[in-house]
Design a protein around this nucleic acid. Structure first.
Lengths: 247, 247
DNA sequence: TGAGTAAAGGTCATCTTGACCTGAACTAAG
DNA sequence: CTTAGTTCAGGTCAAGATGACCTTTACTCA
């Protein structure tokens, strides 16, 4: 019986039209706190770890409960446990990060979200590096978002997580647009193609997409038989134990 | 008041002479379990998180208590929380990895260690990939060790963690020997020098080391003013909270 | 039928990497 | 004192990767 409470929070990334430019930009939903501490501030969606739930399941459940989106990718980010971070008692937070496809976020309108005290924010506007109108985030969530952003941007370059924003098949332009939105930087189409094809990460399906006012692009899919250097976060929640010196 | 117990374990790496070849090899101390579950098996050193302790402090304390070594580097690895991993109740383990300098591990002899049910193992012999005499590890600790090994080997190539195995100043050969032991692979001295110097990670102190039967090498130190791409594990245990949807 | 657009496939200079070579500067053996 | 042995330190060179840019292809729309 521990006197430490265990919570999960999730940084949920989606590509949504920028409020000004309209171009896809990394965005994430935050929840307005309705009680102290930090009442009125915006916080990451989350909740408590269920007694019979794995950490990943808890993260998935709480993010669906609060935001309604269903993630296509979920990975552990970091565990925060400073003893003084909550005035109301000792809380340790296991933070996850998630990616969602566009079709999974259209279910609820922004107005419906607002009624639930949920709102989408442009990711880069939250890290405090922009200088402009960053909303007041609860606790240390601004730093958490910054760290999750860094992980996503690092990982998109050597793994296949971009697929979590796309369907089963896609054109190289679609894939490139995802990379561009994530990295917030334009990429040379020809060089991007060369890299993707030489790495063997994607393979053409043979089909083409017609209907555009240009040469019809090929469709690709990720080649799961080739493994990139990933190793990633292990698999989720493998069994592991307290250890040798325990009670 | 939670019914989930929170533990910490640490994968402690040191460079010790290989039992056969005598050359420095990545090694780590394990603790023999004296009770069920997994009585008699070897496990990572660890213990319970103190109510008023940060996670990192708990990890540091428990590893000193069980092994007596003082780490020069400590970083969070991953948090494991499958509901069924301990038969004796729900336990969530925050796992850290640590590096220790040689002078910190000489304090206790192997015999003294043995009396406390602590023993050093060659890291690569524990991951189950070698096929030979891997000792039976408790829980899923073999996979944890493998993951920690991967993190260390990945990180030594783009950060300054090798210094955690060295003193304030060092020759490029010493630094290279650390990299070679960590990566378990020989490196070309000239190419290693070129990479280190061009990256700006190290700077010559101006001093040289005499006494060897060869041209006296320069001493170097890490240049902390240049920052490599690290970003690493944030700083430790920043305050963060349960989140929006909490009770 | 021509203009506009992006796809697809290329070139070229530059940078990085691994393999290897040569002279420098020390110690120890003879 | 001389020479052999050793590693240090500073190179070269070819192969591969990267970024900038160009040309042709193949479609749609006016």
């Amino acid at each position: 019986m521990s006197d430490i409470d265990l919570a999960v929070s999730t940084v949920i990334f989606a590509l949504r039209p920028h409020p000004d430019s309209g171009r896809p930009v990394l965005s994430l939903p935050l929840v307005r706190r309705t009680r102290d501490p930090f009442e009125g501030h915006w916080a990451l969606p989350g909740g408590w770890v269920g007694t019979h739930e794995s950490l990943e399941t808890s993260a998935g459940r709480t993010l669906v409960e609060t935001t309604g989106v269903r993630p296509s990718y979920l990975e552990q980010l970091y565990t925060f446990g400073a003893p003084d971070r909550s005035p109301t008692g000792r809380v340790v937070s296991v933070v996850y990060w998630a990616l969602v496809r566009p079709e999974q976020i259209g279910e609820r309108t922004d107005a419906a979200f607002d009624a639930q005290n949920v709102r989408w924010f442009v990711a880069d506007s939250l890290t405090g590096e922009q200088g402009d109108e960053a909303p007041a985030l609860a606790f240390d969530h601004a730093r958490v978002v910054a760290y999750a952003l860094w992980r996503l941007r690092t990982k998109v370059e050597y793994s296949r997580i971009a697929q979590a924003f796309l369907g089963e098949t896609f054109t190289l332009a679609e894939l490139r647009h995802v990379h561009e939105a994530v990295l917030d930087r334009e990429l040379d189409p020809a060089n991007f193609r060369r890299q993707m094809e030489s790495s063997g990460a994607v393979v053409p399906t043979g089909e083409r997409v017609t209907g555009g006012r240009h040469r019809p692009p090929r469709l690709y899919r990720y080649d799961t038989s080739v493994d990139l250097v990933d190793n990633g976060p292990l698999v989720d929640d493998g069994p592991i134990a307290p250890s040798g010196a325990e009670s």
